[in-house]
């Protein structure tokens, strides 16, 4: 198993770099994960990441793309409530890349 070493703490990750333990997540490790993904975290990026974590805490799963875009539209303005904007923030896909930075398990299935 791979791992991230940070400030004397070890964060276990899987083959694809997703955190194994949800509870390990903090903003420091999120910054490292974002760096590995070549994503420059802005406030809007953090909004997405925080929404993902909140949603996950409530529903034990990342939100559907449609739910995410709607929520982001409400938070950041309707012109940003579309998947195009989310892809601008997270080029490899909001579902997978943003989940990784948010420390959530990778959503897999027929997606």
């Amino acid at each position: 198993m791979a791992a991230i070493e940070l400030n004397g703490k070890t964060y276990e990750t899987d083959e694809e770099g997703y955190l194994v333990n949800l509870a390990d997540w903090d903003e420091d490790v999120a910054a490292v994960l974002a760096e590995q993904e070549n994503v420059q975290m802005s406030n809007n990026h953090w909004e997405v990441v925080n929404f993902l974590r909140e949603y996950y805490n409530e529903f034990q799963i990342a939100p559907a793309v449609r739910v995410l875009t709607k929520a982001i539209g409400k938070k950041l303005g309707p012109e940003k409530g579309n998947s195009q904007y989310l892809y601008e923030l997270f080029p490899y896909g909001p579902a997978k890349q943003a989940c990784k930075i948010a420390g959530l398990p990778k959503p897999t299935g027929c997606i």
Binding site: F59, A64, R66, V67, G109, C110
Partner: peptide, 29 residues
């Protein structure tokens, strides 16, 4: 994925409340 079907009910691992939330959203839309 098969494990998620047994454990949660579907490939993605969407629990009932998440399904309900998504479907409510669709009705609104």
């Amino acid at each position: 994925i098969i494990g998620k079907v047994h454990r949660i009910g579907n490939n993605l691992g969407l629990p009932g409340p998440a399904l309900q939330d998504t479907l409510n959203g669709l009705e609104e839309d």
